[in-house]
Structures are given as structure tokens and as C-alpha cells.
Simulated scan of single mutants.
Amino acid sequence: MLARIYQPARTAMQSGQAKTHVWLLEFVPEQAKRIDPLMGWTGSGDMNRQVTLRFDSKDAAVTYAERHGIAYRIEEPKPRKHILRRAGYGDNFASNRRNAWTH
């Protein structure tokens, strides 16, 4: 049973960094999902797929995995490139704007 320790990325619907500072421990699926022939639902017999543990730091997640004898793989987060504008969002609607408004 292999676990993956990672820091989640922000969703496409959020602009801030909320819920991205925790570290998650999830188990890698051991079985492929299968489709029920009657209803068409997707299911699996792998119960560890439902387990997600949250930790405040990467070290806490690694300590937990080692204490319980769980093999793990750490996925480091990619650094985010920050986009900083001179005046921020309000600059999009300034009356002295030089570029055309593209929205």
C-alpha cells in the first residue's frame, strides 16, 4: 500500500490561496475502477481510495506514514508565479488607460 503526500493546488474557481497550505496523504489506488453493467455507475473494491488525511506540515505527514509503516511518495508543489500589477484590479477600469480594454 503506497501513499502519496502532496500539497493541493488551488481550484480553477478560486483566485486566492485558501485550502492550499495543508498537506494531504492519500493512498494510491490498488485496483482499477470498474463500470457497473446494469446502472453504468463507476465503482471499486479499493476502500483506501476513500481515505484522505490532512496535516499542517509535510513533516507531520511523513512522521505519520513512518509511524504506521506506510510506504509513501512526496510530491513537492510547483512554485506559483505571482502576477503583480502597478495598481491592481482597479487599474483595468482607469480612465487614463493606454491599452484597449480587452474584456
Rank of each mutant, 00 (worst) to 15 (best):
R67C: 01
F27D: 00
V28T: 05
R4A: 09
H21V: 10
P8D: 03
V51P: 07
I5L: 13
H68C: 10
L25P: 00
R80V: 15
F55T: 06
R98G: 00
M47G: 05
E75C: 04
V28M: 14
D56Y: 14
I70W: 00
T52I: 11
S15F: 11
K19E: 12
A18V: 09
S95Y: 09
N48M: 12
N99E: 15
P8Y: 06
A18P: 01
R73I: 14
R4T: 11
Q14R: 05
I74H: 04
P29H: 07
G88M: 09
R54V: 13
Q17G: 06
P37F: 09
P77F: 02
R67P: 00
R73D: 10
P79D: 01
Y72K: 00
G16I: 03
R49P: 01
E75V: 14
H82D: 13
A12V: 14
E66P: 02
G90Q: 13
I70V: 10
R54L: 04
M1D: 08
L24G: 00
R10E: 01
G69S: 01
D36R: 06
M47S: 12
D56L: 15
P37W: 02
G45T: 09
H68E: 15
I74K: 02
A100L: 12
T63M: 13
H68N: 11
R97G: 01
R98S: 07
S44Y: 03
A100H: 11
R49H: 00
M13T: 15
Q50P: 01
D59Y: 01
N96E: 05
F55R: 03
Q7L: 02
A71H: 10
H68F: 14
N92V: 04
R80S: 08
F27V: 02
Y72P: 12
H103Y: 06
W23P: 00
W41Q: 05
L53H: 06
M39W: 10
T20P: 05
I35D: 06
H21K: 11
A100I: 13
Q17S: 15
T63W: 07
L2W: 05
A9S: 14
W101L: 13
F55I: 04
F93I: 13
T11D: 02
K81P: 09
